[in-house]
């Protein structure tokens, strides 16, 4: 299976998961968007050598995945794929920053390694949170939530349409790429040049399709603003979910829990 087909299937799997039912799924999309944003902001706000202090934050994705009954292997697999980007970003740190910062059992760990691990942790945490948000909410609902939270309508619209036609575009490029492959007989198929023309064709087709879609909208009374039905408002459960998690994030940000625990266990020896 090709890369494009694979990633389409992943998207579809996320969409399917979002149609399941759990107390997390039933939360107002805005609640989940806000909590996820808060989580990401707090995780990113730590200083570059933070490793221990980040660990307790794993409770958020773990708890949500358990309650929402998400497939651990699928999500972990996705996170792993994205981790390669994080590796690419951080891989030079251990070489550039060789100053020893901490000692564990006599082995010195340099600042570079610490910041590298920190980058990996943060990427894993934030990507997992974003995936959980998508897998429990669905992309369309997220767009709507963002709009109701104040994102300019035009961006929300763009995102919704992008998501709808991503599949169509991906399938189209896949067919085109297959057609090229079938006639290039394992050779290079005239090298890079056909791709230029393929991209051009895709752009023109997309353009034409956009025009047809716009016409379809006009046909059904579109006058420039999308009329959507508002979902039920936030309930008490939403508010407690929101405030509960944000309080926890702030506490975890202010107090280094692993260190506190360490102190507690060391107390008797003092």
């Amino acid at each position: 299976m090709s890369v494009i087909e694979g990633s389409i299937l992943d998207f579809r799997r996320l969409d399917l998961l979002a149609r399941e039912d759990s107390i997390i799924h039933r939360l107002d999309p805005r609640t989940k968007v806000l909590v996820t944003l808060a989580f990401i902001l707090v995780v990113v706000s730590f200083d570059r050598y933070a490793v221990n202090a980040l660990l307790p934050f794993a409770i958020f994705p773990v708890a949500l995945m358990a309650v929402a009954n998400l497939p651990t292997r699928f999500i972990a697999g996705k996170v792993l794929t994205v981790s390669f980007f994080a590796v690419a970003i951080g891989i030079l740190n251990p070489l550039l920053d060789r100053q020893i910062l901490i000692q564990i059992d006599g082995i010195g760990i340099s600042g570079g390694w610490l910041s590298f691990i920190s980058i990996l942790l943060r990427s894993a945490l934030t990507v997992t949170a974003a995936l959980i948000l998508t897998a429990t909410t669905g992309f369309g609902a997220i767009c709507q939530a963002l709009e109701r939270l104040g994102m300019p309508t035009i961006f929300a619209r763009q995102l919704t349409f992008m998501y709808r036609y991503l599949f169509v575009l991906a399938e189209e490029s896949q067919r085109m790429s297959n057609a090229r492959e079938l006639r290039s007989c394992r050779g290079t198929g005239m090298g890079i040049r056909p791709y230029a023309s393929m991209v051009g064709h895709l752009l023109l087709r997309t353009w034409e399709r956009a025009e047809r879609v716009h016409r379809a909208m006009l046909c059904r009374g579109y006058k420039g603003n999308m009329v959507t039905q508002k979902s039920a408002g936030m309930r008490l459960w939403d508010l407690s979910f929101l405030l509960g998690w944000i309080t926890l994030f702030v506490l975890l940000r202010m107090y280094d829990v692993p260190r506190l625990l360490g102190h507690l266990t060391m107390m008797p020896h003092l």
Binding site: F139, G140, T160, R164, R212, V213, A216, M217
Partner: peptide
């Protein structure tokens, strides 16, 4: 082409 007509989520 129904894909042109079905544009909502």
């Amino acid at each position: 082409n129904p894909d042109d007509q079905l544009f909502m989520p």
